[in-house]
Nucleic acid binder design. Structure first.
Lengths: 103, 103
DNA sequence: TTGACATGTAACCATTTGGTTCTGTATTAA
DNA sequence: TTAATACAGAACCAAATGGTTACATGTCAA
């Protein structure tokens, strides 16, 4: 079980980064467009984007002089799966059903 | 949606703390018992336990001179719910079923 | 009651984190 | 071709993080 999930959980640890994730769930955004939504400098936001990229949470496609940031839900799934392991402790009913469905 | 989940995500950000969570999912453990499993000093582990407690992830019951640490899955659920919001992006089928079940 | 055990907490330290400003480099528009 | 735009990256800084050792306190056992 050893820590493949560390970069994802690290990415999730900061509220600004979680806000960026939420923002990108509505659709891809250019870097500057994201930065303009926050009360901090563009390089600060750029650093957060780097950490999100390192965690595999977002991917970037250059388009002209812009860089378009896309959410990469696969990476979030890794963290969700880790947490869902504990499902059984808070919701046996739903967890059992899920297992059934997955079979 | 504003940051009630911050302390939980903070608690989840460190690999040692996630290991402690896994350990406690097998059953309650005394502080020293937990510390002995890690290659670091007891106070270091105690600090991690404090952060887990602040995140509501564990709760502590004194028993004699020991302090028994219990997993508190409710707090983990908070983080899981945040992530599950993005379910729809990676697994529409299961997410739809879940919604149906929850009704 | 005395000593060992289980633990918490304080003081300290190196590294990481999250922010800043400044500078450099493509790319688009005039 | 020149000026403005969109961005990356370096250098710097304060505060938070994750670790340490040393010390204090409550509880159990002899």
């Amino acid at each position: 079980m050893q820590d493949q999930s560390q970069p994802v959980f690290r990415a999730l640890a900061d509220p600004t980064r979680r806000a960026i994730i939420t923002m990108l769930s509505e659709g891809p955004r250019a870097t500057g467009e994201i930065a303009s939504e926050f009360d901090m400098s563009r390089p600060a936001v750029a650093k957060h984007l780097t950490i999100l990229r390192e965690g595999g949470v977002i991917s970037v496609k250059p388009r002209g002089r812009e860089r378009i940031n896309h959410l990469n839900p696969q990476a979030l799934k890794r963290a969700a799966m880790w947490l869902n392991y504990f499902d059984e402790f808070w919701d046996d009913r739903l967890s059992n059903l899920k297992k059934l469905v997955e079979e």
